[in-house]
Structures are given as C-alpha cells and as structure tokens.
Amino acid sequence: MTFGEYVVSRWGTLSLAAAEHALVVAIAIGIATVVGVGIGLLGFQAPKVRGASLALSAGILTIPSLALLTLLIPITGLGWGPTLVALTGYAFLPIIRNTVTGLDGVDAATVEAGRGMGLSAARVLLKVRLPLAWPLILTGVRVSAQMLIGIAAIAAYVDGPGLGTQIFEGLARLGSVNSLNATLAGTLGIVVIAVLFDAFFFAVRQLTTPRGLRVRP
C-alpha cells in the first residue's frame, strides 16, 4: 500500500486523531495563556511572584515528558487527563516570561507620562503596558503552541489523544505492513497541524495588535 492509499483508507482515524491532537493543544494553550498572562501581570508588581512562577515553570519544562505523563497517571488516570495537565504545565514558561519581559519593556517615558497624567498604577498596567506588550506575549503563546504540538505526540504513551498513536504503532511494528506509512502519517500530520497553528497565530497577531503599533511612519 502506498502512503497515499494508506491515508485515504485510514482517513477517518487519521482526521479524528489530528483533530484531537489540535484540540488538546488548543485547550492547554488556552488555559496556560489565561493563567500565565494573569501570573505575569501579578508578578509584574510582586517580584516574589515573578521569581517563583518563572522558577516553577522552568522547573516543569526540565521534567522529561514521558516521566511527567507517567507520574500523572495515579492522579489523573489515563487519556486526556494527564495529557492536558502535562501540556498546560509545559506551556507556562514562554508565556509568563514573555508577559513579564513585555510589560517591563514598555518605554519608561510613556509610563511616566501616564502616571503624570493621573492614570492609576493598575490602569497604566492594563491600558498602557498590556496593549504595548501584547505582540510579545502573543509570541510567547505561539512558541508554547509549537512546543506543545510536538510534545502532544508523546501523550500516546498514556493513551492520550492525538497523532502520537500512529507514530508509536508504526514504530512498534517496524518492518511490518504499513508501519512506515503509519509513522509517516502521524509525523506529517503533526507538521501540518503546526503550520496551521502558526498561520492561526499570525492572523491573531494581525487582528489583535493595536493599529498604532503596526502603522509605518
């Protein structure tokens, strides 16, 4: 069976796995963005929160994904549970770090002018710093998303959703019929998902970056 025939014959399985793969990543990124940006905003004014959250999220990233997924089984069981928890955990570092860096990087004169005009500290943070930091925050989210799409493949080990199943099945039966096709389908599917996510974030960036930051002089 050629690769093309394989994809056509297994289209139902493959497309469902791909959709689940994208969905689990999207949910994890959604949660991590809301929580991560929130922590970044809190950490901006509380150095202890900032230090602790950055250290913790960096710590999570050092745990091998296979180990983390396995360690989560007693708590979350198999399948979607450990996959979502692990992916969300991995997504934090780029998001929190870019949020903090972006908020910090806003031109001091702009902030001073805002304070001097009588904007409260909270208003400067939410109405001035956050919109100006947004492109950088979004870059963090995008990096996290790309990373998670790759990691999500490992989730097949704990019976998680996604295209990882194709890859692992193929590798386990290497040399037998369709093993290469399965591995290839899983891998290429992940590449396609990554490209689609990137296109999505490009569009989001275009739509949500304040116009004043996009205009050319």
Binding site: A109, V111, E112, A113, G114, G118, L132, R211
Partner: peptide, 17 residues
Amino acid sequence: LRRHIGYAIQQVGLFPH
C-alpha cells in the same frame, strides 16, 4: 491631584497604541 496638573516631558511619552 495629577489629573488637575498638566504634565509634559521631553520624551513626550505619547501612547503609541
């Protein structure tokens, strides 16, 4: 207080967004 005092600085500090 600051809302009742005009404030202008050298770097201007307009909000770019």
